[in-house]
């Protein structure tokens, strides 16, 4: 089975985030890492504390946007960055643990603030070889 991966993709004004993994929840975890990578390299973020996130949506795609937007909210209100994610999904219900630390402007040199995850280029689907893809554009 392939290893999960994350990447960003081009959008004219902003940037797309994409997670690919052997399960849907793994793809959600990778999408979150991709979003962190827009701000800072995820490996630069130390797991100093963890938070629990729960959300629910009418379908998988809205759930992905909700998940990423909850992280945007937690980053903004806690002045934190997150670099490790563990997601569990069942019936459009998400439970997750995000691990991270407070923003250290000197050390992290955060590039840009993510304003919100959008429905642009939004997709959650199987892409063959047993892999799942979860992606959308984030507004920066």
């Amino acid at each position: 089975m392939s290893n999960p991966v994350y990447e960003t993709f081009d959008h004219e004004a902003d940037i797309g985030v994409r997670g690919i993994g052997p399960t849907k929840s793994s793809a959600f975890e990778q999408a979150a890492l991709a979003m962190t990578s827009v701000i800072v390299e995820p490996e630069e973020v130390a797991p100093r504390f963890s938070i629990r996130i729960e959300c629910e949506a009418p379908d998988d795609e809205l759930l992905l946007v909700d998940w990423l937007n909850r992280l945007v909210y937690e980053m903004a209100t806690r002045h934190a960055l997150f670099g490790r994610f563990a997601v569990e999904l069942s019936n459009h219900h998400l439970t997750a643990i995000a691990e991270g630390e407070s923003v250290d402007r000197e050390r992290h040199q955060p590039t840009v603030e993510v304003k919100g995850a959008t429905y642009n280029e939004l997709a959650v689907r199987q892409i063959g070889s047993g892999l799942w893809l979860a992606q959308c554009v984030v507004d920066v």
């Binding site: 009418p58 809205l62 946007v65 909700d66 937007n69 945007v72 909210y73 903004a76 209100t77 304003k115 919100g116 995850a117 959008t118 429905y119 507004d139």
Partner: peptide, 17 residues
């Protein structure tokens, strides 16, 4: 700032649904 971003996030979702 964050207030406008959050309002947009919440209402885009609700309007889409």
């Amino acid at each position: 700032r964050g207030l406008g971003h959050q309002i947009a996030t919440e209402f885009v979702r609700q309007m889409a649904i």
